[in-house]
Design a protein around this nucleic acid. Structure first.
Lengths: 273, 273
DNA sequence: ACATCAAGTTCCGATATGCGGAACTTTTCG
DNA sequence: CGAAAAGTTCCGCATATCGGAACTTGATGT
């Protein structure tokens, strides 16, 4: 819980380097531009100190200042860093194993996704052994409004943030099923939120049906990991997809568990030799 | 001075903080576990230095060590950081979407620029699908005096500031069309100010014609991003470029709207518990 | 088992960086 | 146009960084 923002949301560490990383965490939570002053108030750090940190981040391309020189936003280098971190994650192996098992269970291609810059990023994917398959690469991107994972990400966003994103992204039609009407999409997102899962029923690629859930940490908080099953409609219907839901949820829980386990500090050093 | 070092000395920055971030970038690229020694070899940094950095990253939960205590992997906190960075970064996605749509409309490569340190910085770019294209990457920089966006930035500057900036940088000639005479440049800038748009007519790269406008918030907010269309003269003339102006202005307005929204304070985002 | 070597770890003085109160400059607003 | 607020610079003090050298640990070979 990051909730005691009331006064000093102390974000500090023992060393300058750790303090900088803590600052990055505060910045990572921003979906708006932010100012020096806002950080001063949020963190309680002295203004010159934050100013220097921001200056370093900016001059190394991690942050970017708007032309008014007052508002900061995330820079390309920081974005690339984050994407590479996720794409090459060391728990990748563990996640991949979960994904493989899911593919074994349901017999269709599955993938893990994350939201990145308003688009859905494919982090990993395991193909079905069936001959007929859709060919999609890890690292590629898909719009939020016409992917199952994307709808889930949208569903868990604060309304204001979602509205802004959807307001500025054209709801481009890829197929006849693509939801291009904002109200219809919002209604769909409501449904998705209640159900806890989402379909992509030929909304992006003709003939492709997809069902997804989030890898949610039960402790609450938003998730940036989705897991999905993708199959040609020749082999998959909505009803058939729903039958896979338990397996899908099991996989999602497993992936959430990987993340949770990774969080536990090993406290290993008690292992004397 | 770009890094001319041999392959080894990759990890550099002017300050310890920046060096740490550079290290994180190296780590971000790892898709497997890594050891201290491997980083020593890859970066050429002294072993104790890297050891200290890794120690700090580990003790703050950014990295994790395997049971053998020699192999490092990415920690949960680092993964969290990366996810949040991407999760909350909707501005970039929205801008990118506007850019993509513009490229669809006009059929040529477009980019978003900002003035940064007296140079024009390419924030984002979407390529045309045409075979013949100029290849320019986001993150690169171009002098103000020979780019369409740059002239716009100059045109809206207070005269004193513009004069100072132009006095500091040499008006280097890149092509025969480059304006290297200060008076001629000032005259061009006057024209640009009146028109509200600017050309770059082979002033930077031979064969490249470019037209740009500012994403200007009319309410006085000085959020000045530039948005531009770039095309080979084989397919683009000044007249043809002018026909794209309406689309360009529409895109500029959309981007200005995004920025205006994103400037709003987080409205005390109450993610209640 | 012991020698050998490679990787990891600790030590420490010199240096560079971070730190942040105070003062200064610029912008915003009434 | 003057006051308040945000951003920026200054600068002496404190502290983290740096990295060569030495030490410890664990793996390998005979």
């Amino acid at each position: 819980m990051t909730s005691h923002k009331t006064e000093t949301t102390r974000l500090e560490g023992d060393t300058p380097a750790q303090r900088l990383l803590a600052l990055l965490e505060v910045i990572a939570d921003k979906d708006h531009f932010f100012t020096l002053q806002s950080l001063v108030e949020e963190t309680g750090m002295p203004k010159p100190t934050l100013h220097r940190m921001l200056q370093q981040l900016e001059s190394s391309g991690m942050l970017q200042r708007e032309a008014d020189s007052r508002h900061y936003g995330k820079g390309n280098r920081l974005r690339r860093l984050a994407e590479n971190l996720l794409l090459n994650d060391t728990v990748h192996g563990a996640r991949h194993a979960v994904l493989s098992q899911l593919v074994d269970e349901v017999g269709e291609s599955c993938n893990i996704t994350a939201l990145s810059g308003g688009e859905v990023l494919y982090l990993d994917r395991v193909e079905t052994s069936e001959a007929l398959r859709f060919y999609l690469h890890p690292g590629s991107r898909v719009p939020v409004h016409c992917s199952a994972s994307g709808k889930l990400f949208l569903a868990q966003m604060p309304p204001a943030q979602r509205r802004r994103l959807l307001g500025e992204i054209p709801l481009k039609a890829f197929t006849g099923n693509t939801l291009t009407d904002l109200d219809a999409l919002e209604a769909e997102i409501d449904t998705v939120r209640q159900q806890g899962y989402a379909f992509d029923d030929e909304e992006f690629l003709p003939g492709l049906l997809c069902i997804a859930v989030l890898a949610l940490d039960p402790n609450g908080g938003k998730s940036n990991l989705g897991i999905a099953i993708q199959a040609p409609i020749m082999r998959m219907s909505r009803d058939k997809a729903l039958e896979c839901l338990p397996a899908l949820h099991r996989a999602a829980d497993a992936i959430a568990a990987i993340d949770r386990d990774a969080m536990l500090q090993p406290l290993t050093n008690e292992v004397q030799s």
